[in-house]
């Protein structure tokens, strides 16, 4: 027994020494990654796989801590209030960063209180109709909505999320009325679309259902080209106000040191290129898309400003 504990002690010692030798400066102790979503969801899976792979590469332990509640704002405000040393960072996704703060009193200012470390996933949000639907284009939908006010039924996987705002902004720009029908999660939206309860949806599940021959893609709700139907325009290409990026990323408190940001800019692309990450991403239907500190900050700032204008115009609360 004593031999075993000595052995473990030796291994641990060796592990700390080797990590110290490899990592010049940051990181030289365990990092806490705050996940504002509960264990078991997509955000949690993403946090855990990033923590495991990045931790292995940097030679330190990255501990995932789930701090849920308040539509993810509780966890993110814990990140914003942490010491800016790079040892407390957080997982973030679109809604609590660029969208929700325009509709509610968030306990942080996304532009002033956070540093954006990097983006690692940018999902597609295709606008889909049933494969047998009469609507072949966005114009067909708009035409129907104009002639039948309020009778076009549609949904997105999250109420008041980015895609919801983007499609509302589209209808507002065309000055037509359509009816948003809320469902809890993309798979229920897909069931409602296929079952004929709604006519249109903007959900990430739309890529697979289109490959399966059940749906048709009319447009793409994010700035990323749709891989299944590349000829589908993004909403901004089609002349509408906003096509917000639907991202997963990492952020830290305001004022993270440059060496921390540089380290993550170096490690994150390697994590994303690893076969382990690719496999998980494929299973979760994430589109892997890296953006470093500078590019990610720009994405957030652009979308934050665009969403502010769009949400004020729609009057969404």
């Amino acid at each position: 027994m004593r031999g075993l504990s000595k052995l473990i002690g030796g291994v641990l010692l060796a592990a700390t020494m080797s990590s110290g030798a490899f990592a010049a400066g940051y990181p030289d102790k365990p990092i806490t990654l705050i996940c504002p979503y509960s264990a078991g969801g997509g955000g949690d899976t993403a946090s855990r796989i990033i923590a495991k792979l990045a931790g292995d590469m940097m030679g330190v332990q990255i501990n995932v801590e789930n701090k849920t509640g308040g539509g993810a704002t509780i966890g993110i405000s814990a990140v914003a209030n942490a010491a800016p040393d790079g040892y407390t960072i957080g997982f973030i996704s679109t809604s609590p960063i660029t969208i929700r703060p325009h509709m509610m009193e968030a306990p942080y200012n996304p532009i002033e209180d956070l540093t954006y470390i990097g983006q690692f996933v940018a999902s597609n949000q295709p606008m889909i109709v049933r494969a047998d639907s009469p609507y072949k284009s966005v114009d067909d939908l708009i035409k129907f909505a104009r002639e039948n006010p309020g009778k076009l039924r549609w949904s997105t996987s999250v109420q008041r999320g980015g895609p919801h705002v983007a499609v509302e902004a589209m209808f507002k720009a065309e000055e037509v009325d359509a009816t948003f029908v809320p469902f809890k999660g993309g798979s229920k939206v897909l069931a409602a679309l296929l079952g004929g309860t709604i006519e249109m949806a903007m959900i990430s599940e739309g890529n697979k259902s289109t490959l399966d021959g059940q749906t048709r893609i009319l447009a793409e709700g994010t700035p990323n080209k749709n891989p299944v139907t590349p000829e589908a325009p993004t909403l901004t290409e089609a002349g509408y106000p906003i096509a917000p990026a639907i991202f997963f990323g990492l952020a830290g408190p305001k004022g993270l040191p440059d060496d921390v940001l540089a380290k993550w800019d170096e490690v994150l692309p390697k994590v994303l290129a690893s076969p382990e990450f690719k496999q998980i991403a494929e299973a979760q239907q994430w589109t892997v898309a890296h953006a470093g500190h500078a590019a990610f900050t720009k994405i957030v700032e652009t979308d934050y400003a665009a969403a502010k204008t769009a949400i004020a115009a729609i009057g969404m609360k």
Binding site: G40, S187, L190, A191, L194, K208, S209, I280, Q284, Q285
Partner: peptide, 19 residues
């Protein structure tokens, strides 16, 4: 039949299948 998971358990099985 449709690729629509009925609950969390089925969603997890779906993701395991795809992995």
């Amino acid at each position: 039949a449709f690729g629509i998971p009925g609950d969390i358990a089925a969603a997890l099985i779906l993701s395991a299948l795809m992995v």
